[in-house]
Every structure is written in C-alpha cells, then in structure tokens.
Design a protein around this nucleic acid. Structure first.
Length: 619
DNA sequence: AAAAAAC
C-alpha cells in the first residue's frame, strides 16, 4: 500500500521539468535510496529530498531553440545516484554506480554480461573465434556511403577518435571490437553531435552498437540526466523500440554489454512473458528501456512508465515499425504519450530498407535529420550467393529435401569443417500453419527441425531459437517473425520456401546469412504465385551481380507494372534521402535541393541515375 | 491474405 504522501506526489509532481542548465542552479544531489527501501515506506525519506527549484519550473516541451535539459523536479523522491556523474569522468572510480561504495552494490550485483552466459550460446564455444573478431574488415574498406543533411559531422576511423570514455572503451575491448564498422564510423559522430538520424545499414555490421553507444555515452555525460521515478512510474531517458520480441531481447543483451559498469541501467519489456517480472525490473530503475510496442503501450497505460523524460529515441527496423501494421501504435507512443517533441529529444531510425513512403512518414518524428546510407560489402560480388529455382507448389517439399540431403553430404557447401560446425539452415514460409506443418514433415523425414512463429508461446519461441542456435535442431522453419534483425551466427543457408510479396522482406530474410563478413547461401523457390516479385527480384539479383536465370528475366519482363509498387527509394545501395529525391523531381538540380546542404558521398556516383526499385544493402 | 505486436 502506498502512503498518502506518495500518492500526492504522484498526483501533483509527476512532471519532469525542463530547464536550461545554464540559467538555473543545479539541484543538489538527491539522497540515495537503496533498492530494498524503495517500494516500501517512501515516507522514510525525510520529505522533500533536495531540489533547488520550487517545483514550478515546468515549461512544457518547447525547446526554444537549443536542446533544453530534462530534469526531475526537486521535491519528489528522486533517487538518482552519484555514480553516473563520476562515471562520466571516465577516470578514477573505475566503474559506474555498481562499483561505488554505497551504490547499488551488494543487493544488486551487476552480472558480467561478458562472463559465463554460455549456457545459452554454448555453440560459440565450438567455433574457433569470437564472433566479432571474425568480421572481415577488409571487405568494408571500399563500401559506398551517402550522407546528406546539414552540417554532417565527418566519420571517424577509430574508436579512440570518438572518445567515449574509458569505461565504454573497456566494453568495446571486451566486445572484441577492433575498429568501428562503416555504419559506426559514420553514425556515431552524427549521433554524438546530437543530430537526428535516419540510417540504412547492415545489422550484422554493428548497427545496434551504432545507436547504443551514443545513447549510453549521452546519459553518462549528462550530469543532469538523473534516473527518477514518481510513485511507481519510472522515467527512462532512452527508448529503443523494435518490431519483435526476440529482437528486443537481442538488443537488450547487447546493450547490457555496452553499458556494463557505466551505471546506465538497461531494461527490456515485451509481450508474451509475465509482466510482473518486468515490472519488478523497472521498479529497480531504468535508464534505457528496450521494448516492443504492445507491451510498452500496456506499461504506459498502467502508468508504470512515462516517456516524459525520454531524450533518446531509437527505432530499430524503422521501416517495419512504420508500416501499416505498426504505424498507429508507434504514432501513439511517440506523439500521444507525453514524449518530448522531436527536436527536443534526439531521434534515430535504423533499417536496411527505407522505402520512400516510409521515409516521408518517418520525417514526422525527425527534426532536421541527417540521412545516412552505408552500402553493401564488396563492390560487385557479395557475401551472399543468391539462387532462384522454379519449383511448383507441389514439389516444394521434395525439392527442399533434395537440397538438405545434398547439404548434408557436402558438409557446409564444400567448406572444410568440423562436425560441430554444422551449417544452420533457416527456412522461411508464408504462414504459421505452414511452418508447423513443414517442421513436422522435416522431423518425420529425419531432419531435426524446430519452428518459430507468432502462434507459439513466447517460451516455445525462445526455446526454438536456442535450440537452433546451439545446433541441436539445425533447421529452423520460420515466418517473417525471424526475418529481421536477428543475429544468428552460423546460418549458412536461407531457404525462401515461400517467397514474400515484398522485395524488402526478401532482403531482410536473406540478410540472416552472410553476416559479420562471413559468406552465405540464399535459395528461393519461385513459381507462378510469385509473379509480382519477378521484376524486383531480378533487378535486385542483377544489381548484386548474381546469376539471374533466363526464365526469371522472362517473367520479369512480362510482370505487371504493379510489381514495383513497393518501390524503393532508388540509388544503388540502400536507398537515398527522399528529401533529395523530391528536390530532384522538382528541378533536376542535384545539389540545390533545399534540405541537402553539405552532403558528402563516398566512392559512388549518386547522380548516375539508377532505376528506382533497385537497391542492395541489407540490414 | 499473412505476419507481427498486450492482456
């Protein structure tokens, strides 16, 4: 039972004040409240805990030009700790809140995310290297990059140049990151400069880090960004949204590594799992919340989370988040839930694919953003070999069986490998029912498989993913729930048993292989029910220097024009800035476009005029 | 038409 004091606080003082740190006195540090005292009798906290303002400094979310500082009002029971301030200095203390005496310690020891969590990922032990050191950086040297917008900060070449501070540098070393990937080289300076960002880039090349490091660093540096709560409502400073539960988990796992010992607390919330545990986790404090939209809305409606203090918003797989199914929910979260306005918060959108319509939608959430596109790895050949085969619906199963037998006999497509390193095969189908049925059939025919789709319980989904990752069931039959973002090492083969209707989905699906500089194979079963995909698929494959079968070219040439309805934004690698494209449409003058001052491009002649609908960078 | 996402 909450005390009346707490109730009155939550009624009257729930606002997060925004003020200018330069013109207002800095609040004195609030009293630390150890976790075991928090949910209990708050009234022990000697009433108003500090605060220099009278509590009337609420100014709404009008930025007034410069980015204002978001602050808790003083009179509530803020329990921000001193840890972050010291941690931001990067030196002396050698750690964040958790290392500090009087910190969270003892009761809540931060689990070392680099430590012995190999129960889940035990297959890694069987592979020769850590994942990240396996990245083939040479392949990244010459990739094309486009960045447009005002005052684009130049890219960096090393992590040292970025100056994220010693604690983050240690985590970078622990992650075995040697040097930043292309998306990191470009995106991190942009994000650190406080700019909004729309980025097309590969997930396999460290996209998560590209938005996590700036957010963590920003929260550490910001002396005024203190963790706070009012009653049972918590106020995260960073919010990361993703379209599937598994992807949210994955981002959370990574973010925990990046934030280790920084004192920045990352919590994940998603549906299908008991909410109580997530609530407890939130109550213990949250700086960065990683969530799927549905569960977040639930938490917001229960008033267990408020977005009022959000300073950093990141949407992963942003084009999916803004497509027809998700857009209303995202709009609700971003525009109708008290989140600071664009321009006040910093917004970062990441995806491999950014159709122009989605870019236009997304610009509602952005303020004078920089558009960044990082091209695919390698100039003409690719890490993913794509094959298309004409397979009648009725022949699909036996054809798959042939492939799997051949694969089994060849080992990993001819690669010399240990038994342990058996190739993982990811099979995409159209429907949940189809997934179950194919999985059952494969198992009956001697191919240990499992399946992941939205009709399975979350427990089943997570078990399936673990079983697949570990190699216990080296075949995973999946719907599009697994198409995006999931980083599953050692997927050697992606089979599009049923092709998707949207070429972007195809791009994301095949991107589950050929990750982190490794090679992969993607096989698609094409038949007359995929006619609308013929043209974009043929174009995509041609662009990626893949062998396009004559019959596919034939279908493509006869395909109805509507096959291009999901028209991509043009440009040869991952799309280009729709603002620029629209200005081209108006006056054909490339560089006089209103929004694209000071653009730079690397290594690619953007003005070359590529057909719309062609692009080849994947997430 | 299907998939995903809350209870």
């Amino acid at each position: 039972m909450r005390t009346s004091w707490a109730d009155s606080v939550s009624n009257s003082a729930a606002e997060i004040a925004i003020w200018d740190k330069n013109s207002l006195p800095r609040p004195t540090r609030s009293t630390y409240v150890p976790p075991h005292l928090r949910s209990g009798s708050i009234s022990d906290l000697s009433g108003p805990v500090t605060g220099t303002n009278g509590g009337s400094r609420w100014t709404g979310s009008d930025g007034g030009g410069t980015k204002p500082e978001l602050r808790r009002q003083g009179q509530a029971n803020s329990y921000a700790t001193a840890g972050r301030d010291a941690a931001a200095g990067g030196g002396g203390g050698g750690g964040g809140r958790n290392n500090r005496s009087g910190g969270w310690d003892r009761r809540e020891r931060e689990v070392n995310p680099f430590g012995n969590d190999d129960k889940i990922y035990d297959i890694k032990q069987n592979f020769s290297e850590q994942e990240n050191s396996g990245i083939n950086f040479d392949a990244y040297e010459d990739i094309p990059v486009e960045a447009s917008g005002e005052n684009v900060p130049p890219p960096v070449n090393t992590f040292a140049e970025i100056d994220l501070g010693e604690i983050l540098n240690q985590n970078i070393r622990r992650c075995k990151y040697v040097k930043p990937t292309p998306v990191q080289r470009h995106a991190i300076p942009i994000a650190l400069a406080g700019k909004d960002l729309m980025a097309c880039a590969q997930t396999g090349s460290g996209k998560t880090a590209a938005f996590c490091f700036p957010i963590i660093s920003g929260i550490m540096r910001e002396l005024y960004a203190q963790r706070s709560h009012v009653g049972r409502t918590v106020y995260p400073l960073g919010l990361i949204l993703s379209p599937t539960r598994e992807l949210s988990c994955q981002i959370h796992d990574e973010a925990k590594k990046f934030s280790y010992q920084t004192g920045v607390k990352v919590v994940v919330a998603y549906g299908g799992a008991p909410i109580n545990q997530q609530l407890r986790e939130l109550e213990r404090g949250v700086d960065i919340l990683v969530a799927t939209p549905g569960r977040l809305v639930d938490l917001l409606e229960r008033a267990r989370v408020s977005l009022q203090a959000v300073r950093y918003l990141a949407l992963d797989e942003a084009d999916r988040m803004l497509d027809m199914g998700f857009e209303p929910q995202i709009r609700k979260i971003v525009e109708q839930m008290n989140m600071p306005n664009r321009g006040v918060r910093q917004t970062m959108l990441f995806s491999a694919t950014f159709p122009r319509e989605i870019q236009r939608l997304a610009s509602d959430f952005l303020s004078n953003h920089i558009f960044l596109a990082v091209g695919r790895v390698g100039p003409s050949t690719d890490l993913i070999v794509q094959r298309v085969e004409f397979v009648l619906e009725s022949d699909k199963r036996s054809h798959l069986m042939d492939l799997l037998h051949a694969q089994r006999e060849n080992g990993n497509h001819g690669k010399v490998s240990l038994n342990l390193q058996q190739a993982l095969t990811l099979v995409f189908v159209e429907t949940k029912k189809g997934a179950d049925s194919l999985e059952h059939w494969l198992c009956m025919n001697g191919f240990p498989s499992t399946t992941i789709h939205g009709d399975r319980t979350q427990q089943e989904r997570e078990l399936a993913l673990r079983s697949f990752k570990s190699g216990k069931t080296p075949i995973l039959v999946a719907t599009d729930v697994a198409a995006r973002g999931l980083d599953i090492p050692h997927v050697a083969h992606v089979v599009n048993f049923d092709l998707p209707n949207d070429i972007d989905d195809y791009v994301h699906r095949i991107g589950r292989t050929g990750r982190a500089g490794k090679t992969g194979l993607a096989t698609a079963f094409f038949n007359e029910s995929n006619l609308s995909l013929a043209r974009p698929l043929a174009e995509l494959m041609q662009e990626a220097s893949q062998e396009v079968p004559a019959w596919l070219t034939h279908y493509a040439s006869r395909a109805p024009y509507g096959g291009n309805k999901n028209r991509r934004s043009g440009g040869r690698f991952g799309g280009s800035d729709f603002r620029r494209e629209e200005s081209i449409g108006k006056n054909l003058d490339y560089y006089s476009g209103g929004n694209s001052g000071n653009a730079y491009e690397g290594l690619v002649d953007i003005a070359g005029g590529y057909a719309p609908g062609v692009t080849s960078a994947w997430d």
